[in-house]
Design a protein around this nucleic acid. Sequence first.
DNA 1: ACCTGAACACCGTTCAAGT
DNA 2: ACCTGAACACCGTTCAAGT
Lengths: 215, 215
Amino acid sequence: MSTENRRQEIAQAALALVDRDGLDALSMRRLAAEVGVGTMTLYGYFRTKEDLLDAVVDVAQGGYRPAPPAGGWRESLRMVARDWHRGLARHPSLVQLRLRRPVLSPEAFRGTEVAMTALLDGGFPPAEAARAFRVLFLYVFATAAFNDEEVTPERTREVARAAASLPDDEFPTLTAMMPRELAASMGGEEQFEYGLDVVLDGLEARLRSSSRAGA
Amino acid sequence: MSTENRRQEIAQAALALVDRDGLDALSMRRLAAEVGVGTMTLYGYFRTKEDLLDAVVDVAQGGYRPAPPAGGWRESLRMVARDWHRGLARHPSLVQLRLRRPVLSPEAFRGTEVAMTALLDGGFPPAEAARAFRVLFLYVFATAAFNDEEVTPERTREVARAAASLPDDEFPTLTAMMPRELAASMGGEEQFEYGLDVVLDGLEARLRSSSRAGA
DNA sequence: ACCTGAACACCGTTCAAGT
DNA sequence: ACCTGAACACCGTTCAAGT
């Protein structure tokens, strides 16, 4: 019981360390020093480092309670997507942690429940609701994994320069007109919202064609 | 010149090692042993391990030549997406490598050139073509990063069990009807193609609304 | 020039010993 | 019971020395 509390405290400290210095900075030795115990003491609370990482994921996703759904399935999915997007921005290492293996703890399913209920209410058949939800999930996590949180001027220069210096016989389109547009698409809120609309519009199109087939 | 060849050979060996045993198995020491040189010899060809990893990415993307475009922008984008999807399946570590930082080498832009040309020909304004392309890129890479290549029966059981054992007062939808559907959406070709259609339909909807606004 | 062993500052984890 | 130092088998990289 108090062991469980201590476990939580240590996982919290690990999350703080990881948020501050990045996932690579998290070592058992360093965490132990931070917490003020011998390295091997940690192994009394976590069987392995993997076990610790799972606890960090749970702590990071802990506080999340999705807002009660309002509006149609589009608005519900949009809200869940933005919630996750914010959460991943708050804990940038979460996406790396979830890459290692899928997370199946209850905490990870709260948004899923809301989104899936909204999709079923919206008229998606169950099998397609699951597929549809997964596409949204992938989009939000891909943004966190591959996009910049914001596109800085330096980044713009770097990407634009790389694109502009491609051999223009092999890359006529990219060199001629795209360097700055390409840079702008590498991250930022506007890009996130654009892609969110693309996914939601695509789901709406799927819904129309599957209900046409069904009815 | 011969130094450059040797560099390529070593990067090839590193890629083979990584394809065989995973990215975590790649160490400078182990690669050196594999290649039959002293560990420090590698530092004559690569300034750091990061430098080696960049070379591995280039080698992995080396052979790729996109098929010449045929059909409209939808078909072109679909082909590029499937090409990447296959490439990432062939070298599963590529996605982890590209997570570390964006790759800006020419080899990485061949599909981009094809896709972007198709989008411009299809009527997307340049700024939107870049954003549209990025959404497709994110989708394909997210699939490689987060989805299973195929959904095995064991995986289905594992996910279904996790979903079914959620507290049913907090997760009524997931526990009641979704366990198997959820599992089926975690990977596989059918899921990939479903999401690809969602993205392409979504882009088509965006195109219609932006050309309506423009005309 | 090209190569490389020793050494340094790190890892995760086992094991045996402390209280 | 709970904690932990020493040790083992690894890392990436610097440095100085070999040919």
